[in-house]
Write a protein that binds this DNA or RNA. Structure first.
Lengths: 104, 104
DNA sequence: GAAGTATATGTCATATATGACATATTAACA
DNA sequence: TGTTAATATGTCATATATGACATATACTTC
């Protein structure tokens, strides 16, 4: 795994510590994590486009500001389900949500 | 989605087309459900292509045969996360995993 | 028919995600 | 500086998803 990807993951809170743990990530696991980070970024962008605060979006999807913040930060406790539902609520299609290709 | 609507869907067998109005689903909820059903179908097809049994796939993703069956049946207790991870394990891209176009 | 193989269904204890809340940090502006 | 709005972080009780297991159904092949 290249260091750029590794740093991205670390920033998002996925890292536990050592590089060894990263090497134990299967390609599928890496793809899954990248997918979530993509959705997180897309959600942030989509919300900005609509000029909504995190609190406003939270109201839209019957969630809370803190959880929206965690969604956009790629917090590991946030599920794909929640991310996708948020994007759908902002008028995105699931395909829109995916954006660029993710390498496996 | 609140559990009341989920319950309605479960009772209705989930897959009936244009059940949206009858079940009082918002377009977002309908899109979310259609997405999951798409993933369910894609998973079934992908598994068949690879000539794997549900048990074999279950072993691959460290799950169980019964849960794989539920995935492919679109059972409401199956998360997007699990569906996507299964598809990734079968070599699909996240884009593939996200399924065909879903109208919102 | 029996026996084997694959898939479906139901249940449950446990694991994980959730909204809510408090609080901290950041950013913009007087 | 101080004040306000926006966003981030930490925690927790509850809700939901999970794998495992039992068992049922379906479909072969003998």
């Amino acid at each position: 795994m290249d260091s750029k990807k590794r740093q991205k993951l670390e920033e998002a809170g996925w890292a536990i510590g050592s590089a060894e743990e990263f090497l134990e990530l299967t390609p599928e696991e890496a793809a899954y994590i990248e997918l979530k980070l993509n959705l997180a970024r897309n959600l942030h962008a989509a919300r900005q486009e609509k000029q909504l605060t995190q609190s406003a979006l939270a109201r839209l999807i019957h969630s809370s500001q803190s959880r929206v913040a965690k969604m956009e930060k790629g917090d590991p406790t946030v599920s794909l389900d929640l991310l996708v539902r948020a994007l759908l609520a902002l008028g995105k299609t699931p395909q829109d949500a995916m954006g660029e290709s993710v390498k496996v």
